[in-house]
Amino acid sequence: MNLKQGWSLLKRQVSTIRRQFGHDWQIFARNRLAILGVILIVTFGMIALVYPILRMTVFNYKLYDPVAGFDVRLPHPSKPGPEHLLGTDSLGHDVLSMLLAATAPTFIIGIAAAVTAACVSSVVGLLSAYYAGAVDAILMQIADAFLLLPAPLFMVIMGMRFPNLTSLELGIIYGTIAGFGGAAILVRAQALQVMAKPFISAARVAGGSSLHIIFTHLLIHVAPLVALQMMLTVTGVVVADGFIAFFGFTRNYLNWGAMIYSSFVYSYTFQTGTEWHVLLPPAIALSLFAAAFYFVSRGLQDITDPYRKHPAENGKNLTSWQRI
């Protein structure tokens, strides 16, 4: 009996939270680019998931393996054709296969960086805002120092010295830098605004502990901002990952930057001229991947932005073309 009552209460709570998210979603969905970003991310995600299956079942290992494949029937590099939809590069690798195979590692590095950045920035930003005083001063001084550090450059140095770093590890390194620097400062600024609100005082009068206030009041307020920072982190880390590969520090996984790099190197060494069909796909894929997460971040920006909170009050005059 009691259990049943409790269950119904829980169900109602869940449906309310869904309603809250529904409200956020409405704001988000008004931004057409954000929707495009979601669609792109879903597409890339499906590619990352489906490719390993295709590789094991449909694709002929000898022709299409991104590393070992070689088509003896054609001169390489070959232009796009029915056998190789995007052609092959100077070493005879199928471009489409490489393109698809590079999706999953890119996702891993992106997600690793985003999650790390989210954790680091919320912990640092919230502690700093909540405890203020000396804790704040020290943490923000460190954050300022991190802001001086060009994260992608640091990644290139790391990649140069440790060619064996996996995409997961690189993602965590990047996430820590990005999270401690810019993201933590922004989270702190927003958390400070929330800290000044009377509902925090009310929670304190109720007897709420610092953990209670941080988790139930501050965190839900900075959550959209943290999500936004996660998206920007993905954009940044994917480009940084491309840099590492592009500078020729080849690593133990395939990525788009490496494809661009090798296309340049081959056209230089074999004097073949620019192989546009090899160069374009990875460049476009890399930009699209980075852009997809950036688009989503623009949608999240609308949610975090207090001005755009109430469409009926504030944004009614803004047409959709103005909110890209």
């Binding site: 509902f199 009310a202 929670a203 109720a206 139930t216 009041h217 839900i220």
Partner: peptide, 25 residues
């Protein structure tokens, strides 16, 4: 508190807000 627009957490339900003292105690 003075300002009813600021003293309730906009991201929590009325139930969450009212039950908060009971919950933390």
């Amino acid at each position: 508190f003075q300002d009813p627009y600021e003293s309730l957490n906009p991201r929590r339900t009325i139930f969450d807000t009212v039950v908060e003292p009971l919950a933390v105690q």
